[in-house]
Design a protein around this nucleic acid. Structure first.
Lengths: 280, 280
DNA sequence: GCAGCTGTGGAATACGCATTCCACGTTGAC
DNA sequence: GTCAACGTGGAATGCGTATTCCACAGCTGC
């Protein structure tokens, strides 16, 4: 056996195991590869779960887990699991250290690191702001309006476009009928002309507002199509023509905004809609 | 029994249990006091050990541990142990408090609201995971590779596409030359054929990996174009052909993932690159 | 000083667990 | 086309586990 040597010397530390898995991943048969990927992606599950529960999540047999562990020189699954547990104990302390370090020597860090930390913390703040700003009842109403729609028209340009494109991707997976407005040039108006009051529109626009998006939302509203919108100010022109609108203010770092909170909001709306449809 | 009420409502969270133990420690009989002290002093042992091993360390009988758990309303020792385990998992999240509150309110809220809260908290968790996973040095190296590039080729499909499209928007504003691969069908290969080792590529792909993205990244690497990538597993085919690669595991809510953490990472990278260029 | 009650230790038990084993598929070589 | 070797799924097994139960000890109130 090629792993006879390994059998006598299983990895003693999580990092060693991780390295071994990555090094030998190409020699692994199909199911063991599956386990390897699951193990590295969900280490916490391995640490706490039982062989049976882990096997279920990873879509393999418990015996496969044992074989996997044996492949890397352990007696059985339990031996491998100990490494995952040890890691969790260590990580807690080291993670705390890191946070403390970040707070202390923030100014001393390299510029890239401080930009990185800045965006992460801006994202945290944005999420906090969103959860405070969005009223559950309003959200509920928006979900039901969109869930009852025949087709959902997604209106977004420029900075908002990534959000609508992700919603489009998710709607596709969830089998919710939609139209992404603004993909091919010129035919937007024709597309919108097909919308009826049985449909609905979801418009996204942040300051400075793209005039096209605003205009399109107005047209829809005028024709009786219910419009839900996501924007960053109560003064947004979108607010006027919307049945429900949400204000999401992304915190910025050095003047640049990411879309972390908007993305989370959009995903919640998307899944909420799909879920509401499934129930009816 | 004085703890009849507690029997119906065991603490749902570690902190609640801790409080309960401290509050009621004077009502506890001798051996249970001993267990209480041990539990608060060695929480990790409780999380990882077995009833037998813990009983040995704490100099009590296993049955005493069960009685202790039952005193606080749990069915048995296992129920109490779960709190200690959950604590270890959450420990690296500074948002413990908020999450707990969300979980408590959870059942009372409408489904839409709980979906909403779920995505926001998943986003928080993702951000925490990102900041723990990304090494500053690695990030720094990636920034300088991309900052030195003549043109940055952005490779992303499907779920990753919104990220690259936002980077494209930001690069445009920041006057960084880039090429978004995959917009118009068919000409991708011609576009990539123009890349030289003086350029660089940034590839994004999450499981299940789009074969096109992987293939394109491989082609670039083979031609000497440095590739930086963002993916969700060390097993990603992107990892092999990249000069630097980053693992961002988005936490999921009910099986759906948003892109909050990836977005924050992408923005940090984007601004980091622009900033590095400005300095030189 | 006796009765009743709570607290305690330790054996008995039933369950769930990791592990083993074997039969079936699948693949690749000759 | 046949055979061997390997990978795989799933049932069988035996062990370790949490839990229950019961007998006894130590109080407390009367």
């Amino acid at each position: 056996m090629s792993n006879a040597a390994a059998k006598e010397q299983p990895p003693q530390h999580f990092d060693a195991l991780r390295t071994a898995i990555l090094e030998r991943k190409h020699e692994l048969p199909k199911r063991l590869t599956q386990v390897a990927a699951y193990a590295l992606d969900h280490p916490d599950e391995i640490a706490f779960g039982t062989a049976a529960s882990i096997a279920l999540s990873a879509n393999v047999q418990p015996s496969t887990l044992v074989r996997f562990a044996q492949f890397f020189g352990f007696d059985g699954f339990s031996g491998l699991q100990m490494l995952f547990r040890a890691r969790l104990r260590e990580r807690n302390s080291s993670y705390e250290d890191r946070l403390r370090q970040l707070e202390q020597d923030g100014p001393a860090l390299t510029e890239s690191s401080s930009i990185f930390n800045g965006f992460i913390s801006a994202a945290h703040r944005s999420l906090d702001a969103v959860i405070a700003a969005v009223e559950p009842e309003k959200f509920e109403r928006a979900v039901s309006i969109l869930a009852e729609a025949d087709t959902i028209y997604l209106i977004a340009k420029r900075r908002s476009y990534p959000i609508s494109s992700y919603m489009a991707y998710a709607f596709g997976k969830l089998k919710v009928r939609f139209q992404l407005v603004g993909t091919a040039a010129g035919i937007d108006d024709d597309m919108l002309a097909m919308a009826t009051p049985k449909d609905a529109a979801f418009a996204i626009s942040f300051s400075p507002y793209a005039s096209e998006s605003t205009a399109q939302a107005r047209v829809m509203a005028a024709r009786g199509v219910p419009v839900i919108s996501l924007t960053d100010s109560a003064f947004s022109p979108l607010a006027e023509c919307s049945k429900e609108w949400f204000e999401v203010v992304e915190a910025d770092h050095a003047g640049f905004r990411s879309l972390s909170a908007s993305m989370a909001f959009a995903m919640a709306l998307t899944v909420g809609i799909a879920e509401a449809r499934r129930r009816h």
